[in-house]
């Protein structure tokens, strides 16, 4: 075969240069909107967040010269957009206090599971790593948040007549179309948990297909598997160390249908709050919040937390 001549290399170089220049012209600018309500945390926590998280999760993004060159700039712009959409330390008060605490626990977990900061970011930005001792500082901090030792002291509200009989026409339906159903009360328990953030205790039910899949060591779980997690507050510990459930908080549903719910890892998510079973969220985007966390932390168990594993 004839070797390509000099003109070939020359024209290739010209084309590549044109592409490169063209990319620079369309390269996105990273803008920093005003800081409206910055997170307030102790100085030793703040400096870790600023160094390792603020470049994507704040309105104080510091862009290095190499971040501005396409195609890297496209990646940076994408990460900043995605990062701010998950949580933004500069607009922290947009989240209610309970969500703020949950996000902080998620951050600790994302760092511990080495999902964050992003690997590529750490390669390009030497300050982007979080050391083991810094992670310990963050853990110590979340364990001091008010939700960690929250006690449900309110009188336990019993179901009244209006709660007791939900007319079929009044069945609560989540924004993605998943209806509430009390079937789960006849299912088996697959796990019982004590969750630290927000002070809650949970009982997790699985339907026959789910229980069978666990018994058969079948992962991923089959279509038709269902999980319902019932969540209560925690009462004060008694003298023998027993902690009993307080008020009912919510019931969380997961329904496996790999085709119907392919956008949310094969699971349909729903949450019903309080004894009135008010469907969670203002828009159907609520399910993204569920999926993001399940996708990041539970891929090894088909995106389900709270299943019995060795």
């Amino acid at each position: 075969m004839k070797k390509p001549g000099l003109t070939f290399y020359k024209s290739a170089a010209v084309v590549l240069t044109l592409i490169f220049v063209g990319l620079q012209i369309s390269s996105p600018d990273i803008e920093n909107p005003p800081v409206t309500s910055e997170i307030s945390v102790p100085a030793e926590v703040k400096q870790i967040l600023e160094r390792a998280c603020y470049d994507c999760h704040s309105n104080e993004v510091k862009v290095e010269w190499f971040d501005k060159i396409a195609p890297a700039s496209f990646l940076v712009a994408h990460d900043v957009k995605e990062g701010r959409s998950r949580f933004n330390f500069s607009e922290w008060d947009k989240n209610p206090p309970s969500v703020q605490e949950l996000l902080l626990w998620e951050m600790v977990n994302a760092i511990e599971q080495e999902k964050m900061p992003l690997k590529l970011y750490q390669v390009a930005h030497t300050g982007g790593k979080v050391s083991a001792s810094e992670l310990a500082v963050l853990k110590q901090y979340v364990n001091k948040l008010p939700g960690r030792h929250k006690i449900d002291t309110a009188r336990i509200v019993a179901k009244n007549a209006s709660h007791q009989q939900i007319a079929p026409s009044k069945t609560p339906v989540a924004l993605n179309g998943i209806p509430y159903s009390a079937d789960y009360k006849n299912w088996k328990i697959i796990s019982i948990t004590d969750k630290f953030d927000g002070g809650s205790m949970r009982v997790v039910y699985g339907n026959d297909m789910m229980v069978k899949a666990i018994k058969d060591h079948q992962l991923p779980f089959p279509d038709g598997a269902r999980v319902v997690k019932v969540v209560w507050g925690k009462q004060a510990e008694d003298k023998d160390g027993n902690v009993l459930p307080g008020n009912f908080q919510n019931a969380q549903f997961m329904i496996k249908d790999s085709k119907k719910y392919s956008k949310t890892e094969g699971w349909g998510f729903a949450r019903f709050d309080g004894l009135d079973l008010k469907p969670a969220g203002k828009t159907v985007l609520f399910e993204q919040t569920c999926t993001n966390c399940h996708r990041m932390f539970a891929p090894q168990s088909d995106f389900v937390f709270n299943i019995p594993t060795k």
Binding site: I189, V203, V211, I214, H217, K310
Partner: peptide, 19 residues
């Protein structure tokens, strides 16, 4: 993950009182 069915308990016809 390695599933652990031996952690399950089948309470038969009995229902949940509380955890």
């Amino acid at each position: 993950a390695t599933l652990a069915p031996d952690y399950l308990y089948d309470a038969g016809n009995q229902a949940v009182i509380k955890s």
